[in-house]
Design a protein around this nucleic acid. Structure first.
Lengths: 214, 214
DNA sequence: GTCTATAGGCGGATAGAC
DNA sequence: GTCTATCCGCCTATAGAC
């Protein structure tokens, strides 16, 4: 597993290392607010008050509201790229590697749906330079997935006529979990990860491993 | 086909019947602006100026900015529910009906990605009553898809251990097309529709109809 | 580092002429 | 039905005390 600890389900698990304490609390508050209302509808007053501070305190730790979004987006993207590359390098067969990649990626998007919503759906609010930097990280994500599909085809484990198109579809399927997942829904992040891994193996014409799917 | 005419690729094809002309122009302008910048980041001045009017003219045709979003959302949801129910009632086998449903639904989300982005991603900006009304229409969408999957299993054409979970995944895959589709990308809406129909048939353990996929 | 106070500007919506 | 002008509130960001 690539989890970091028991507080994995907490929205801000990824920001544990941020100091000072006030800066971290502001990040967590911003994640919640951006996820609930969107970047533009969120006021700096709202963020500060959720963090138990005055509006002005925000500007001691961050130059602008956009810089908060950038930090959230950057940490989130680092995390997802990390998850995927870890899965890419472990596992005995390509089938196991793809299964693990989808499983972990989906589980993260469900367990951290609050953070993931900001990471995946508020990109357009980033400034031009920050946006360009994040886009580069997203390209890397797509490359990893395309590589996995190509390896599976080479190994004779998958049948994928259109590798780029299928890679986009698989990523898209997984990312969208952040949009619809609700904590009070019928499934745990682990269950959704298992379901999606099975569905994706079917999409690529792989061995179903139906034991997990039933 | 369920298309309405040659201007199918135009963002506002669905608003052709809106009168007077100024009200339709405002709707089209709002779709563009909301899709580009999001509801909250869009100003009524921006919408009005795109429609070639003064800021005040907007309030002759719509009571609030939110009412514009509601109209867009309502027409868009009517259209997608319509697409799905049409596919549900045509076709000889369940495989053909699901193939058609995914193909048409995806094609619409690609061809009308501007409208679709607003329809699918700006829901949270709706007022409470309007939101509730739209949610009802979205439930209907999910029911249609669950019905198709259940019919396919009954007919022995599909193998779907988890019908509700798979229905959510299929819809989710299709909806997310609106997020990533670019007109200048390598694929046409038709091609993506065909690819996704094939991928979904694989997901449900159906006959691949690989002829379309190759 | 955090506060109170406020500058400075923008945005939704309205009034009233034409 | 459309315009110009404007109200009034809210928002980001800063100034300056402690």
């Amino acid at each position: 597993m690539t989890e970091t600890g028991p507080d994995e389900a907490v929205p801000g698990e990824s920001f544990g290392g941020v100091t000072p304490d006030a800066a971290r609390r502001l990040l967590l508050a911003a994640v919640e607010a951006f996820a609930e209302r969107g970047f533009h509808a969120t006021t700096t007053r709202d963020i500060a008050s959720r963090a138990g501070m005055s509006p002005a305190a925000l500007y001691i730790h961050y130059r602008t509201k956009e810089e908060l979004l950038y930090h959230i987006s950057r940490v989130g993207h680092e995390r997802t790229v990390c998850l995927l590359t870890a899965a890419e390098q472990s596992g005995h067969s390509v089938t196991e590697r793809l299964d693990g990649a989808v499983r972990d990626f989906v589980r993260w998007h469900a367990a951290h749906h609050t953070t993931a919503r900001v990471v995946q759906y508020e990109l357009a609010a980033l400034g031009a330079e920050h946006y360009a930097e994040i886009v580069t990280m997203r390209r890397r994500t797509e490359e990893v997935l395309r590589g996995l599909l190509a390896d599976g085809v080479s190994a004779g484990e998958f049948t994928v006529p259109d590798i780029p198109g299928t890679a986009v579809a698989v990523l898209s399927l997984c990312i969208d979990v952040a949009r619809w997942f609700r904590t009070d829904g019928p499934r745990t992040p682990e269950e959704i990860g298992a379901l999606y891994a099975a569905l994706v193996l079917r999409m690529v014409g792989g061995e179903p491993r139906e034991a997990d799917y039933q």
